[in-house]
């Protein structure tokens, strides 16, 4: 395989990395548009499958790009795609972390953190609700998620147990 698809893959994902404010889902639609529509590397149905798998597999959900790269060009494709999406934003955030670390206590830093905290809280909460409203299992998904939340807040149950319990509840009742 020539390195043309690798280059194209990188050119698609590198710019998206720098506009992925809010996380990978922010650029997912554009990734889909480009890899399915524009370049035709994978089909619409395959994209949906890869999306589902990357959400359920451990690790960052954005590893869907690794799978896309894998389908396009094997190991080298998976590596290039992952580095292209994760690299630029990571360098930027590393710079921000260093910048912030050198200026702890400054007015702008305090304002940045105080100003962003409520937005973050709203985003995390909304994301949970968005996921739950489209989750497989309907009401059962809500019940399992809320029960897991309460169990966690009691501080007596760890995440592993909860994931196993969630699987068992679905197998028994769904």
């Amino acid at each position: 395989m020539t390195d043309r698809p690798l280059l194209q893959l990188a050119l698609v994902l590198l710019p998206l990395s720098l506009v992925s404010v809010g996380g990978g889902q922010a650029v997912l639609a554009d990734i889909q548009r480009q890899v399915v529509g524009l370049h035709g590397w994978i089909s619409e149905a395959e994209f949906v499958d890869l999306f589902a798998l990357s959400r359920l597999a451990p690790g960052p959900g954005s590893l869907i790009v690794s799978l896309i790269g894998w389908k396009v060009a094997g190991w080298s494709g998976a590596l290039v795609a992952t580095l292209a999406l994760f690299g630029p934003s990571s360098l930027l955030f590393y710079g921000l972390t260093r910048w912030r670390s050198a200026r702890a206590g400054h007015r702008w830093v305090r304002a940045l953190e105080a100003g962003l905290a409520p937005i973050s809280a709203g985003l995390v909460t909304a994301t949970c609700f968005v996921l739950l409203s489209s989750a497989q299992g309907g009401v059962l998904a809500w019940i399992v998620a809320l029960a897991a939340t309460m169990a966690l807040m009691s501080r007596r149950v760890g995440p592993y147990l909860l994931l196993v319990a969630g699987a068992l509840v679905f197998l028994a009742f769904a």
Binding site: P118, T125, T149
Partner: peptide, 26 residues
């Protein structure tokens, strides 16, 4: 099915996080 159940429980982890973040930010 099992995977869907795991996914629902995992959202519980995020919800716990959401409650902590909201409590601290509000």
């Amino acid at each position: 099915l099992a995977i869907a159940g795991v996914g629902a429980a995992a959202i519980g982890l995020s919800l716990d996080m959401a409650i902590r973040a909201t409590r601290r930010a509000a």
